[in-house]
């Protein structure tokens, strides 16, 4: 009984139930919704969002917050594409991915120095670096979109895991890029649960003071977290450009609130120490559903933002309110 209630009180369960309700309602209003092509479309739409969300979750677990990751993604993606187009058009796609991740990690290191080194408040720092990365990109690197992306990147976007034809003759497919989301989830899971570094990230989020006392290298761990988010942002950026087959420097920025929404819905707490990959992925799934399939439920797409906002408020308000009541009950 209590176990049931405990499970019901968890964000993961709530989000899963909402997703289920959404899918059922959408299927009832349009039977075509529940089909392989729709699911593959949703999976495709969750690649970039998912990779970014995994990074943000790691930051939240460590007790920080990052809003600059979209700017890092755009910066890394655009610079890499420009670099490839201008100097090495024949670099294989994995080379491009490595370059983009390296650029992302470097920018993440800047956040890391400011946050771990100077101990500045993470929200305000990353708001500042968001503006810096974006401003630098658009001022000094370029502000025009690159539509002739290198053929290697285009080839990557054509690599499909599954491909098929519907009864009505339309195509559906799932690109190999999806495997990167899976890979990122696995790597992050290994780091978080199978290494001391991961345990240290959770420990810092649980109590910085205790972490210092038992001898955890707090600053080094925080620095790693921001570098890691940066690298993941770089990866998400280059995948985005490959799949869109265009590098638009204005893309991605503005997505940060949706990503944070997904992570917070999945149960990660702003105070740090709490967050699961399952929850994050469920949160991503819900946000992707809302962003792509709201219309199926008969809600106009213009209400998308309201729905996401309300979801954030409910998803974070419910636990906060419960915690407040529990605190007043416990005296």
């Amino acid at each position: 009984m209590t176990r049931w209630r405990e499970a019901l009180g968890r964000n993961e369960t709530l989000v899963a139930l909402v997703i289920l309700a959404f899918v059922v309602a959408a299927t009832l209003s349009d039977p075509r919704f529940f089909s392989i092509p729709t699911m593959m479309d949703l999976a495709r739409a969750s690649i970039v969002l998912g990779i970014l969300a995994v990074g943000v979750m790691v930051v939240l677990v460590s007790g920080g917050i990052d809003v600059s990751f979209t700017a890092i993604a755009a910066f890394a993606m655009y610079c890499t594409t420009l670099l490839l187009v201008t100097y090495m058009p024949d670099l294989p796609w994995y080379g491009a991915f490595a370059v983009s991740m390296a650029i992302g990690a470097t920018l993440g290191a800047i956040n890391g120095i400011l946050i771990a080194g100077f101990g500045l408040p993470t929200l305000i720092v990353t708001l500042g670096t968001l503006a810096i990365f974006r401003g630098f990109l658009l001022t000094f690197v370029g502000s025009r979109l690159i539509s002739n992306i290198p053929s290697e990147m285009r080839d990557f976007s054509r690599m499909m895991i599954v491909r098929g034809t519907n009864a009505d003759g339309s195509f559906y497919s799932l690109p190999w890029a999806f495997a990167f989301l899976v890979g990122v989830v696995i790597v992050t899971w290994v780091i978080l649960y199978k290494t001391m570094l991961g345990r240290a990230i959770f420990a810092i989020g649980g109590s910085v003071e205790s972490a210092r006392r038992v001898g955890i290298a707090v600053r080094r761990t925080q620095f790693f977290v921001y570098v890691y988010v940066g690298a993941l942002a770089g990866l998400a950026g280059i995948i985005h450009a490959s799949m869109a087959r265009v590098a638009n420097p204005f893309d991605l920025v503005g997505l940060e609130l949706s990503v944070i929404a997904a992570v917070v819905l999945g149960g990660a707490r702003l105070i740090g120490g709490y967050g699961t990959l399952t929850g994050t992925l469920l949160g991503v799934a819900l946000i992707v559903l809302v962003r792509n399939s709201l219309v199926v439920l008969g809600i106009p797409a213009t209400w998308q933002m309201v729905v996401i906002g309300v979801l954030i408020l409910i998803g974070t308000g419910l636990p906060a309110w419960q915690a407040k009541r529990a605190a007043s009950r416990a005296a």
Binding site: L257, A261, V306, G309, L313
Partner: peptide, 11 residues
């Protein structure tokens, strides 16, 4: 709170 409500107001 204000991140969520900001989205709602903008929305």
């Amino acid at each position: 709170a204000t991140l969520g409500s900001g989205l709602v107001f903008t929305g």
